[in-house]
């Protein structure tokens, strides 16, 4: 499973058990659609750090950066690119 597929599966299992991971559109606004609220952002960040080994800086605790799967992928891509 790719990293983004794991994140997708986590979001569905944790916040939207009624949605199959493959059905979650990458561009769906997770905040506006009520899937993730501010508490949910913290849970997601904990998952990214603990289970995916992605370090999130304090200034990256901004809900906008997690607004959709695309946004989360961009955030992770940026980190991998910086690390490379």
């Amino acid at each position: 499973m790719t990293q983004i597929a794991r994140i997708r599966a986590f979001i569905c299992a944790e916040f939207a058990p009624d949605i199959q991971p493959q059905d979650l559109p990458a561009d769906l606004d997770l905040i506006q659609s009520g899937i993730i609220d501010s508490l949910g952002v913290l849970k997601l960040v904990a998952f990214l750090e603990d289970d995916c080994g992605i370090a999130i800086a304090p200034e990256e605790l901004d809900a906008e950066l997690y607004q959709s799967l695309d946004a989360i992928a961009a955030l992770i891509d940026g980190k991998t690119a910086n690390a490379a």
Binding site: D18, I19, D23, L24, L28, S33, G34, I35, D37
Partner: peptide, 17 residues
Amino acid sequence: GSLDLRRHAMTALPAPA
């Protein structure tokens, strides 16, 4: 699907609702 309901909800309701 629930996605249809959520998408419809987004057109008029704030996220906490």
